[in-house]
Amino acid sequence: MFPRWIPVLRGRRVPIGLAVGPAMFVAAIVTSAGLGLYRSAFDGSALLSLRTDTWAAIGPELLWPLWGVALAAGALGYYLRRRGTCRVCGRGAAT
Rank of each mutant, 00 (worst) to 15 (best):
G59H: 05
I16K: 00
W64E: 10
W5F: 11
G36I: 01
V30P: 01
R81H: 07
R12S: 10
G90D: 06
A94Y: 14
P15I: 11
D53E: 04
G11L: 02
R4E: 12
S40F: 01
G77E: 12
W67T: 10
A72G: 10
R39C: 12
Y78W: 15
L76G: 15
S32R: 06
A27L: 08
G77M: 13
I58T: 02
P3R: 00
R51H: 01
F42E: 00
Y78H: 12
A57E: 00
A73C: 14
L48R: 07
W55Q: 05
A57L: 08
A28P: 01
A70D: 03
V26Q: 13
A57W: 07
G44C: 13
R87V: 06
R81M: 06
V14T: 09
R10M: 10
R12H: 09
A73H: 12
G84R: 10
G44F: 15
A73S: 15
R91N: 09
F25L: 14
I16S: 05
A23L: 13
R51G: 13
V14A: 05
V88G: 06
A72Y: 00
S40H: 01
R12G: 02
G90V: 09
R39Q: 15
R51N: 03
A28T: 08
L18S: 05
L71D: 05
P65Q: 08
T31M: 04
L48C: 02
V88P: 01
R10Q: 14
A46I: 04
R81K: 05
A46Y: 05
G68A: 09
P3D: 02
T95Y: 11
Y78F: 15
R39A: 15
G11E: 07
C86P: 01
T31P: 00
W55P: 07
G90Y: 05
S32W: 03
D43N: 07
A75Y: 12
A56R: 04
L80Q: 15
T31N: 04
L50T: 04
L76W: 14
M1N: 10
D53P: 00
R91Q: 08
P60W: 00
Y38N: 02
Y38L: 03
G84D: 11
A46D: 08
F2S: 03
L63N: 09
G90R: 07
E61H: 11
G59Y: 08
R51E: 06
W64Y: 13
L50H: 02
S40T: 06
W64K: 13
G68R: 06
G34K: 13
I58A: 04
T54K: 03
G44M: 12
G68Q: 03
Y79R: 11
M24W: 07
L37A: 12
V14S: 08
G84C: 15
